[in-house]
Amino acid sequence: MLSKNLRPSKAEIAFLDQAYKKFYEIYRETLNDEFWEKDSYYRFFRIKTAFEIYAELLNYEPIKWEIKLIKKNRPPMEGELGSELFKCIRNIFAHFPFFDSWNEVWINKLLINWYKEGQTIDRFLRKYVGKDEIHLRIWEGDKKQMTYLSITFPNEYNDNTQIYLKDIMSEREGVKFSLILMKKIIDTQLIHPNF
């Protein structure tokens, strides 16, 4: 009876093994300066894949527990960014696959709710429209440098105003921050996080 409740299960191990391998491959690639010199379409494909993997990892119960702890114990908004914002971005990629680069991605209320109101993206934007900009910094230990970025929430959320992803957060700094925070969260489930 006890063995059925142990984490991770055999199925979870199979999924986690594949998810972690691919996520870490992309993570290492994006921290390399040469990645940012590659074609915008290639970068976008890799970034989308990382967000998709992370969003799937958010379904793993121990990671959900970690997000709750972050929301309770870490600086304001870190848990919300690590869950709500990243899942929103993943859903934009998944539900609106019309774009070929980060800077092209835009949404508005009409597009988001074409099928049904109140889904993840709609809920996120309703919650954060007009909220103050968040200023963040990330330490890249390998390079011994601090990178600064801002996350800006839209001032308007309606049928006519296009909300560009690049205006919420820049591609290079935003993605680096996102993947570093994602890694920090998923690392909590590894005994030796040098994957």
Rank of each mutant, 00 (worst) to 15 (best):
C88D: 04
S170T: 13
H95N: 04
W102Q: 03
F99G: 06
K184H: 15
K176H: 08
G130E: 09
F177R: 05
L179Q: 05
G82A: 08
E171F: 07
M182Y: 10
K68N: 12
F99I: 04
W102H: 00
W106L: 07
F93S: 06
F51K: 07
F86A: 01
R90K: 12
I168D: 09
L136F: 11
N103V: 02
K48D: 08
Y128I: 09
L179M: 13
S150L: 01
E56I: 02
K176Q: 14
I168Y: 08
F51H: 09
P75L: 14
D167E: 15
E117G: 07
L136A: 11
F98R: 11
W114M: 14
W114F: 15
M169N: 09
L85G: 03
D100F: 10
F98H: 12
A55T: 01
G118L: 03
K183Y: 08
M169P: 05
L181Y: 03
Q119C: 07
L179K: 06
E140S: 06
H95I: 01
T120D: 14
M169S: 10
I89G: 09
Y128P: 05
P97L: 12
E61Q: 02
M77T: 08
M146F: 11
W114D: 12
I180C: 11
F96S: 03
T161Q: 13
F99K: 06
Q119N: 12
S178L: 08
K72G: 01
I92D: 03
P62D: 00
I180S: 13
K166A: 15
K116H: 12
I185K: 09
I185C: 07
P97E: 11
I186M: 08
A94R: 01
K48M: 15
L165I: 14
Q162A: 12
G79R: 06
E56P: 01
F96L: 11
D142L: 15
F177I: 05
F177N: 03
I70Q: 04
I107N: 02
E173I: 00
M182F: 12
K176E: 14
K116V: 09
F96A: 04
N103G: 00
T152Y: 06
A55P: 00
I138S: 15
D122T: 06
D100G: 11
M77Q: 10
E80S: 08
Y157Q: 04
Y60G: 00
D132V: 03
P75F: 12
P97N: 11
F99P: 06
K183R: 15
N155D: 14
I151S: 09
N113L: 02
M146Y: 09
I163D: 08
A50M: 05
E133Q: 10
E156D: 13
M182R: 07
L111D: 03
K131R: 15
I70R: 07
F99N: 07
T49W: 04
L81C: 09
L149D: 04
P97H: 10
W106R: 08
I180P: 02
F124V: 12
F51V: 10
E66N: 01
D132P: 08
E133N: 05
D142P: 04
R90S: 12
R126I: 14
